[in-house]
Amino acid sequence: MSIELRNISKKFGHFSALKDINLEIAEGELVALLGPSGCGKTTLLRIIAGLERPDSGHVMLNGVDKTSHHVSSRGIGFVFQHYALFRHMTVFDNVAFGLRVKPRRDRPSEAQIKQKVSSLLALVQLEWLGERFPDQLSGGQRQRIALARALAVEPEVLLLDEPFGALDASVRKDLRQWLRDLHQELHVTSIFVTHDQEEAMEVASQVVVLHNGNIEQQGSPADIYDYPRNAFVSKFIGQTNILSWRDLRREWLDEASLPGEQPGDGAVAHIRPHNISVEKAVSDIDTPLTIKDWQHLGAIIRIELRYPQLQAEHGSVIYAEMPTERFRELHLEKGDAVAVHIKHAQWFN
């Protein structure tokens, strides 16, 4: 089901949670609503679900205006951050709930329900847990049961509120991959809320970045990473070096061949660490950069470059990244002078 939001606004008291949001999501996408806490992403998700009413604007599902439709008639599945499993029901009854509350003419027989629930439990790989109660399950198991329960009514949209927020790091990693696979299998339009940019980039096919109740950018993970539309998105997604034009010496810029147009005086350059390639300095070049330290991140090395004149956000340090093998070949030592070449930079005012 395609989703279209038109001019959605929502206030809580005097606080504007969402300001005139317009968003289109094509059928079959797996979308991440990404933003820092308090940016309005959960409110937006709840408005799509019908759990919250917008002050103005329209929610269109498959081209039909469903703004005034009750949550129970929107054909959505909602997975809550804290699972919200019915604590007094077994896992089986939890998953069967949505089928059993259907009006009599649509309700499957008990045998069909049993078969459907079993296949859903198999889908989330927890078939042996049917008779347990929610408080006997681990966090990851509860989350998967909550997902099976939402899928039981065959929703046309799956909405997930911080689905991995309350889980251990290792479980979270597994579940991310699993959610991706599941989406590829079912192809149901899905939206999940997260504040973790890594999670959004890893799982989603489309990322929507929210900030202060506005959509800052929408696009594929690669788009957003490589072509952030503004300084907020660039800073929020991935690591970036933020260098102010005032702090950069002209000669050094030429030498590093910093790309982009000649910016104004208040401009800042955002440069991803992997877009800075580091070479050992040849003796006759005057370079201000020396190696301060480095960290092994597995296949890549993150190098900290000291640049004394710089008033950058991280102190006077620029981060660069390169493959570990390349780093070995260069035989760099702490304190070595280095020359850099900047492959790509984004200028923001």
């Binding site: 759990l51 129970s72 599945g77 499993l85 604590r87 949505g98 509350v101």
Partner: peptide, 12 residues
């Protein structure tokens, strides 16, 4: 949350 979950599953 449990009540919202029930409503989202189509319960009255």
């Amino acid at each position: 949350e449990e009540e919202e979950a029930a409503l989202s599953l189509g319960a009255s």
